[in-house]
Nucleic acid binder design. Sequence first.
DNA 1: CCGCTTCGATAGTGAACGTTATCGCAATAG
DNA 2: CTATTGCGATAACGTTCACTATCGAAGCGG
Lengths: 217, 217
Amino acid sequence: MRATDTVAAPKPTATRMTREQSKANTRERLLAAARSAFASSGFHGASVDEIASRAGFSTGALYSNFDGKEDLFLVLMEREIDEHSREIATAVAERPSVAERATGGAQRWMTMIEREPELLLLFMEFWAYGVRDAGVRPKVAARFAQVRRLLTQLIEDGVREFDLQLALPAEQLAVAVDALADGIARQKLADPSAVPDDLMGRVLGLLFSAATRPAGE
Amino acid sequence: MRATDTVAAPKPTATRMTREQSKANTRERLLAAARSAFASSGFHGASVDEIASRAGFSTGALYSNFDGKEDLFLVLMEREIDEHSREIATAVAERPSVAERATGGAQRWMTMIEREPELLLLFMEFWAYGVRDAGVRPKVAARFAQVRRLLTQLIEDGVREFDLQLALPAEQLAVAVDALADGIARQKLADPSAVPDDLMGRVLGLLFSAATRPAGE
DNA sequence: CCGCTTCGATAGTGAACGTTATCGCAATAG
DNA sequence: CTATTGCGATAACGTTCACTATCGAAGCGG
């Protein structure tokens, strides 16, 4: 019963694995299993037993690779947020106009909601967890700040490229955009029929049209 | 040990209470204790023992007044959402212009965030709970719909009173406003310094200025 | 090929949880 | 004043959970 392999191992390469390869591999499989377990049952709902056995390991392995359930969860969240904010950024950056960037980013976000709803639930849990626990809150705040910086950067890039001026600091506009994205996701998940797919793009378009004007005056 | 009274009873009136008065009183005190316990520890964190004893009762009383922890939580949430959406509505309705309505509602929302952050956390948990549990989801969706209807109504009232026309259906604008409010709250709770108090009002103002124009085309 | 080190398996601990069966006691009706 | 009804107290149950102490095995350096 070496591994029932519910989660595919990166490679059980024919050759023996070096010690650190093996450890990294274990970590990776634990993270993948945790992602799946947390996603389907939530932070509280998922048990460490379930996570470890889904990865084909025992809880001992989990505790020798992470400080515990909380640590595992936090590591996972950081990784996911990194990955997805990169996705959004590339979806925005290569569009040729302000309006298209808005709808492009919005579209990317909407498909992400549709494709991985459980992940968004996890983000919310991550948030709730951090807001309640004073020790974790800085980590959550840091992640928010990271996303905010990214959006700010995207906005400032647009302002420079299209020679605009803003009615509001780019940072604050970034806060609003992030807020809108979060809120739209929440409503879509609670009641998909209430949120048309093109809504976010249109609202972003309106918002930017009101918040920007050509730099001459 | 009739009552240690951690939660104040409405009135231990000198006269004896009728049977249904007594039961209603018990329910009320249990709800108050639940509000406080859930708020400080979250849905999972709070135990039914804690809730019951904070109310000055035993767990048996709780189970004879509610179907269980989940039922208690849902009843509490419905009540809170009712109350707070009424508050927002009155804060908006009595302002004399579109811009002032926007900033008025936004201000009310920001002070609510500052005054009762734990309650917002609870709303999020309520949401997460409903999204995960197919049996509860309709109840959550219904509450969202209720808020959406209220906002839609407020918007339509404004459109009629000030003789405007909308670039977007009022319902969809309501979704956006609700989303923005939620998202702003989330960021403010995670990192208060990142969200200026007047941001939401200004963004709402921009959004409405872009989404409306005088009715004569 | 050997001895040392460390990763991961196993089994187990203690605590906390939601829930329910049982029973005393007080409020109502006759 | 008595009989009845049902609310609420008590205590215990069964389950589940995060976490850890111990030990075998497999990679590592020599």
